[in-house]
Computed example of a mutant assay.
Amino acid sequence: MPTIPHLTLNNGVEMPALGFGVFQTPPEETRTAVEAALDAGYRHIDTAAAYGNEREVGEAVAKSGLDVFLETKIWISDYGYDQTLHGFDKSAAKLGVEQIDLLLLHQALPSDFARTREAYRALERLLADGKVRAIGVSNFMVDHLTALLDRATVVPAVNQIEVHPYFAQREVQDFGAEHGILTQAWSPIGGITFYRDSGHTSTLQDPVIGEIARAYGRTPAQVMLRWHLQQGRSAIPKSTNPARIAENLAVTDFALTAEQLAAIDALDTGKRGGPEPDAVTLEAFGRAIPEA
């Protein structure tokens, strides 16, 4: 079983660098997928209130009896100080835990940033009360981070954003690095959302990545995950295929050269696959998160 490197967050908490993602995994498939991930050696699972599968993640982790780093996210519909405190209660109950390892705000809400700030103030309270071990954000751009840091008392430990060879968001990564905020990559191998919505072909078919993969007898996905690890990022690959789940973890026994890393960096298209962060509004994206 591979030994996964750990990253130390800005408050000293250690987190496995590779996490297993369950975005768009139906609840009925989530339990089996998480069990396969834990069997393969993952010890970090990433979910979110908006995914609708926190309960199944919690059930699989509880059944395993393993010590697993759990990460989840508060959805925009639960922003606001009291609402976010209750959002924690809902997520913790569904996950079946009293303490969550890493709790993020899922998106900035630029049209109502005061509500975003109040949500983050609730995360700071949860951290102070020991209900979470670390707090952070997701899909925050530089202007959102700047506005948040202007009032925050705790610097976010993590910013989970779309990062893959075709969309690297270097300015967001660099801003995070300057402020001690770890970049965590969702869609780390340029997932389905990216190629469907950006009009670009798949990173898995990219000739540059393919050539590097052949040189090591590896898959393109493994090369991309290695690229993330060597550049100091956390990455959250997802799959429901047990063979691919295990394959995505087998990336600790080879290393890319500086030239190969640079060649992958050069593939950036500047095209986003996910929604534009400033287009996220309660009117367009709000939905009630069920009680536990």
Rank of each mutant, 00 (worst) to 15 (best):
L18H: 02
R31P: 04
T30V: 01
A36Y: 04
A17L: 10
F20I: 00
A36C: 09
Q24H: 12
F23I: 06
P26A: 13
L38Y: 03
Q24K: 14
E14M: 07
T32W: 11
E35C: 11
E28A: 10
V22K: 10
P27V: 09
T32Q: 15
P26E: 10
A40P: 01
A33R: 07
R31Q: 14
G41P: 00
M15S: 13
L38F: 07
E14C: 04
Y42R: 04
P16H: 02
G19D: 05
T32G: 14
L18V: 05
V22T: 15
D39G: 12
P27K: 15
D39P: 06
H44D: 04
V34P: 06
P27H: 12
E35L: 13
F20K: 01
A33F: 08
F23S: 09
M15F: 05
E14T: 15
T25E: 08
A33L: 10
G41V: 01
P26V: 01
F23M: 12
A17E: 04
F23D: 04
Q24Y: 06
E35Y: 11
A36I: 02
A17W: 03
D39F: 04
A37N: 10
R43T: 13
P16F: 00
L38C: 09
G19V: 03
A36H: 09
T32I: 13
D39Q: 14
A33H: 07
P27C: 11
A40H: 02
F20N: 04
R43W: 10
E35D: 14
E14Y: 02
P16L: 00
D39I: 06
A17K: 08
T25F: 07
A40G: 04
Y42G: 05
Y42T: 07
A33N: 09
P26K: 08
E29N: 14
A37K: 08
A37Q: 08
T30M: 04
A17S: 15
G41D: 01
H44F: 09
G41F: 00
L18Y: 00
T25P: 08
V22C: 14
Y42L: 06
E29I: 11
R31G: 10
A33W: 06
D39Y: 07
A17R: 11
E28G: 00
L18S: 01
A37T: 12
E14V: 07
G41A: 03
A36F: 03
R43C: 11
V22Q: 12
H44E: 06
E14P: 00
Y42P: 05
P27F: 08
R43E: 13
L18D: 02
Y42C: 03
E35I: 13
H44M: 08
P16Y: 00
P27N: 12
P16D: 03
R31F: 13
R43I: 09
F23L: 11
E28I: 04
H44Q: 10
A37I: 12
A33C: 12
E35P: 11
A17I: 09
